[in-house]
Amino acid sequence: MSAETSPSRLSHLQRLEAESIHILREVVAECGRPVMLYSIGKDSAVMLRLAQKAFHPAPPPFPLLHVDTTWKFRAMYALRDQVARESGMKLIVHVNQEGLAQGISPVTHGSQVHTDVMKTQGLKQALDLHGFDAAFGGARRDEEKSRAKERVFSFRSAAHRWDPKRQRPELWSLYNARKLRGESLRVFPLSNWTEFDVWQYIHLEQISIVPLYFAAERPVVERAGTLVMVDDDRLPLAPGERPVMRRVRFRTLGCYPLTGAIESDAATVPDILREMLLSRNSERQGRLIDHDGAGSMEQKKLEGYF
């Protein structure tokens, strides 16, 4: 990514970066009202950096949208507000007020209902409310089996449904961004990145990420083999259950009661890269949401989850 050298051949990451920039620019050139979904995680951080590169010296010509479930880690909210200030981009925060009024929470309703109401429904509300016709998401094909078949430009019906049989063939780097009124696109500029690529890029580009990715002593309780961090006093403890301080970090970040920590000593990005080179567990293991049953991610996608 460095400007000083004129490479004779692009490295793996330079190829990925150039491809992502191409994708970001195609959407801006062909869609009326794009928006970037910003979930505060490491993938969002990389996607935002790529957007800044794609349109430099102009700022990215679209706002950021955070669909807030109100259950994110406190450290995530802090980084989100900092990023909004520093990027100079407009940040739209959307909360599903109906869900909030019904008192939907991951603690009382479980991951399935909470995710559906606060994330999936919340996202649809926000897209409809602002009339966005294309939304960038940070999903990668290497994350999960059903995502390996996802298009870069994923077509959604007016009801935000994903129909696996109606996805458009994608050839070369030619993306079909045409759609009728009400229909929309979800676009994934990081489709061909792997988790390792993302970390390597964060390292090279020195991108700020939520400190929760780095190991530190944190209060956790162990539930069904998963370490859940007690980030505030909303997490009800079972009788006799007491948070203990463990040296942990997170590989992915979501709603804190739904996100499992791993025990780790990796306190810097290079530590994380070293740890990954030796790790034996996959990234989504810490996400309770994927374990709801066979094909559960696919089901969520059909319903409009990212």
Binding site: M1, A3, S6, P7, L10, Q14, E19, K53, H56
Partner: peptide
């Protein structure tokens, strides 16, 4: 040849530039 990482002395096939 403009990029966010500074102007380039040269751009080659595959690079996204301005």
């Amino acid at each position: 040849i403009v990029t966010a990482d500074g102007d380039l002395p040269c751009a080659i096939v595959g690079q996204s530039v301005t």
